[in-house]
Design a protein around this nucleic acid. Structure first.
Lengths: 340, 340
DNA sequence: TGATGCCATGTTAACGTCAACATTATTACA
DNA sequence: TGTAATAATGTTGACGTTAACATGGCATCA
């Protein structure tokens, strides 16, 4: 592991000044062809690579973006991360990943840490949008921030998902199948998607004459265990729901296990709707009806918003891009039967 | 977005030299208590954060580790990434993620790019261990490299997985159930796990009197589509296998779809073994027997190897840690029936 | 032939921090 | 009270790069 060569060593070997080497490195046209090739061979001989830290020092720039997310093992987050990385790489940026495990302190910590010339911008999947600390941190951020699917009380660029229309469509579909007792495992109410879904769920259900739509609505933390527990609770109620909508992938796996443990059949005893297409939704028996959205374009949109902002640093934050959702109908939903 | 304060501005406000501020920042004991508190309040007032680039410049260090992987959307990779990140964060390091999408050129590119004082070390999930270019790049790397589950022709620290023993156990189990035609969807032979598994698969099968064990062995690329195609091919052969082992998660989803499309029942018509526990293996109908390993400890071990090496830069590379595998028996495997 | 201007290249300094050394203040003790 | 020892703080310079300005050479043209 030899010490890396510096620009001065290259300059010396090529018999020019370091400035000329810098010009060659940065493809400036102000260099004679013959000089350029002499410099290039000196660079090759010494295996010279411009020192990224020193360049960063000069330019106060890192060509790196921080991506904050609660949990990489959630396939949804991983897919967003993947598309963010691809978009950033295409724009010549690197992606720093910080996993916060739903810990607000960690979120604040990373947000803070990233300020210190660590990244040029931040893309965040926040786990709680009601936190004062986080809002303040974003407001005071020295680098542009883009949040994904969150409403914050401060102006910030955001990629939003369409939740109301698809939920409304779904409720209409289920009511059309005869369901009147519809369970909902929503995400925590501290984040936007859950609130939006609940709004649409309630108002559509009420409009369609469903009685007390909140009766079977729960908002467990997004884990398999909590999904299991909440589904158990709902499905052992009397009378029990004839349909169940689960909005987080992790909750979904727990809920499915609970349903299996209770010996309930889908869609015979229960119509089931999952969230976000993933490899297993089409493979489970029966294939699941799901609420889906184009995850890839969420990451792309976030990266694009951030890049735009880096190019026009004086633009005020607050731009929004909305990603559509859609309902994918499969055989896990059927007509409601009497179960009480 | 105010320009961040520098150490000199803090020094001026506190009425001390920048060196004293630096001492306070770095918790040196050589500072009078009263001075320290004056400096601390100046820091607070100016919201001073030490500039990470400048610190990096001084120390030739970034406190960042690059993690190279083919694809974040593969849950296995995501889980490794998650545990790598957690271990690195605990040690005060950040994680830069580079997704290579199985493109050797990209792998080489990132490996190269990372040399330029971008990271202090690299952890890599390589997609092809036979590449000369990659081996050369790792050999010449200016920063320590740790590879996960790969054999390279150059000395490099590695976290290895145990593949032979568990495969041998599995084949023994299946033969014990009466299976003689056992299909194997292996990973590409350009990486170690696939070769190790194949070795154990063949030698154990032969030892147990299985005829021509390679007959139903395939090595498709790790995608859902290729898993589908390969499983289709195997399961429409005459006579067809009575058991199928699938070693990649992605292949597994494709294979399951093929099996469903062919109307085959598990375990009635076919005994099925999946790879790497994930949320759905226990939920599919029937729950799947799988080859499993402790993914979390793989990431931890990789981070630990790298940290060790950063602390003892003169240690020669080549350390190895092996992570055990185990067979989780569920109901997707049963006695063999005649199917021809 | 001398002035003008352009092109290729060089010199200097600065980005922010901190190690190494230098200086000054304080304390301990004869 | 003076001197040595020690603690507290300051000064300088360097890490590698490049913007801004400076220089020198050569061609063009009146």
């Amino acid at each position: 592991m030899p010490r890396p060569a510096t620009i001065d060593e290259v300059a010396k070997l090529a018999g020019v000044s370091s400035m000329t080497v810098s010009r060659v490195v940065n493809a400036s046209p102000r260099v004679r062809e013959e000089t350029r090739s002499r410099v290039l061979s000196a660079m090759a001989e010494l295996e010279y690579r411009p020192n990224a830290i020193a360049q960063g020092m000069r330019s106060s720039t890192t060509r790196t973006v921080g991506f904050l997310l609660p949990d990489l093992t959630n396939p949804l987050n991983a897919m967003i991360a993947q598309s963010v990385e691809a978009s950033l790489a295409a724009a010549g940026f690197r992606m720093l990943v910080a996993s916060t495990r739903f810990d607000i302190d960690k979120e604040a910590h990373y947000l803070e840490q990233f300020q210190a010339n660590v990244v040029d911008g931040i893309i965040a999947l926040l786990s709680d949008e009601t936190s004062e600390v986080i809002a303040r941190a974003i407001e005071k951020s020295r680098v542009p921030v883009v949040v994904i699917d969150r409403d914050l009380p401060v102006p910030v660029d955001a990629v939003l998902c369409e939740h109301e229309q698809v939920m409304s469509e779904l409720v209409t579909h289920l009511v059309g199948l005869g369901h009147r007792r519809i369970g909902l495992l929503n995400g925590p109410m501290t984040i936007r998607p859950a609130r939006r879904r609940l709004d649409a769920f309630c108002s559509t259900a009420l409009k369609l004459g469903v009685d007390d739509p909140l009766r079977y609505s729960r908002a467990p933390p997004p884990t398999i265990e909590e999904g299991f527990r909440a589904a158990m609770e709902l499905m052992t109620a009397t009378p029990r729901p004839t349909a169940l909508i689960v909005c987080s992938n992790q909750n979904m796996f727990g809920a499915l296990r609970a349903i299996r443990d209770l010996g309930l059949r889908i869609p015979g005893d229960l119509s089931f709707v999952g969230a976000d297409e993933n490899m297993s939704s089409a493979l489970l028996d029966p294939p699941l009806t799901v609420i889906d959205r184009d995850i890839g374009s969420m990451g792309e949109a976030a990266a694009r918003l951030l890049m735009d902002r880096l190019e026009s640093p004086h633009r005020r934050p607050g731009a929004q891009v909305t990603i559509p959702s859609q309902l994918i109908l499969r055989s896990s939903c059927g007509p409601a039967h009497r179960t009480d």
